Amino acid sequence: MSSIIIENLDDDLIFRLQKRAEYSGRSLEAEAKEILRVVLIENEEQSLNLAAKIEQRFSHFGDFEIPIISRDPLRELPNFED
Rank of each mutant, 00 (worst) to 15 (best):
L36R: 02
L17Q: 05
I5E: 06
D10S: 05
F58M: 13
Q46N: 08
A21S: 13
F15M: 11
E76T: 04
I14Q: 02
K33S: 02
E31P: 01
N49C: 13
S27Y: 10
E65L: 14
A30R: 04
L74M: 03
N43M: 15
E29V: 15
V39F: 10
L74I: 04
V39R: 02
P67D: 03
L28W: 13
N43R: 14
M1A: 04
E31R: 08
E44P: 00
R26M: 15
K33Q: 05
E65C: 05
R37P: 01
L40T: 07
L28C: 02
E7F: 08
H60V: 14
E29P: 00
K53S: 12
S47L: 03
L74C: 00
N79V: 15
I5V: 07
L9Y: 12
R71N: 07
A51V: 12
N43E: 15
R75A: 08
S3M: 05
S59W: 12
K53I: 15
S2C: 06
G25F: 08
L48T: 03
Q56D: 11
R20M: 12
S47E: 11
E76S: 05
L9F: 14
E22Y: 00
L17A: 10
F61E: 09
F64D: 04
I66S: 00
P67K: 05
D10W: 00
A51C: 03
L77E: 02
L17Y: 08
L9M: 15
L77W: 06
S3F: 08
S2G: 09
N43P: 03
E81Q: 00
E55V: 13
D72E: 07
R37C: 05
H60S: 13
E76L: 09
S2I: 12
A32P: 00
R16V: 13
E7N: 07
I4Y: 09
R75S: 08
R37Q: 02
E34S: 00
I41P: 00
L40E: 09
F58D: 11
E65A: 10
A52H: 03
V39W: 08
A52W: 00
R71C: 07
R16I: 12
R20C: 10
I5L: 10
F64G: 00
L40V: 06
Y23C: 06
A21Q: 12
E42F: 07
I4A: 07
K53A: 14
N49E: 14
A52Q: 14
F15V: 12
R26E: 11
R75L: 11
N49Q: 11
N8K: 13
N43S: 06
L13D: 04
I69Q: 05
L77C: 01
N43A: 11
M1Y: 02
N79D: 15
E44M: 15
D11W: 00
F58R: 09
N8M: 13
A30E: 11
I41R: 01
L28G: 08
K19H: 09
S70H: 11
N43K: 15
A21G: 10
L28S: 01
L74H: 00
I54N: 10
A30Q: 11
D11H: 01
E81G: 01
E31G: 02
L50H: 07
D11Q: 09
F80W: 09
K33N: 02
D63P: 15
L36G: 02
I69H: 03
L40Y: 10
L13K: 07
D72T: 05
I6P: 01
A30S: 09
S47M: 07
I4T: 02
D12N: 07
R16E: 15
P78N: 01
P73V: 01
E29W: 04
E65G: 04
S70T: 13
E76I: 12
N79Y: 13
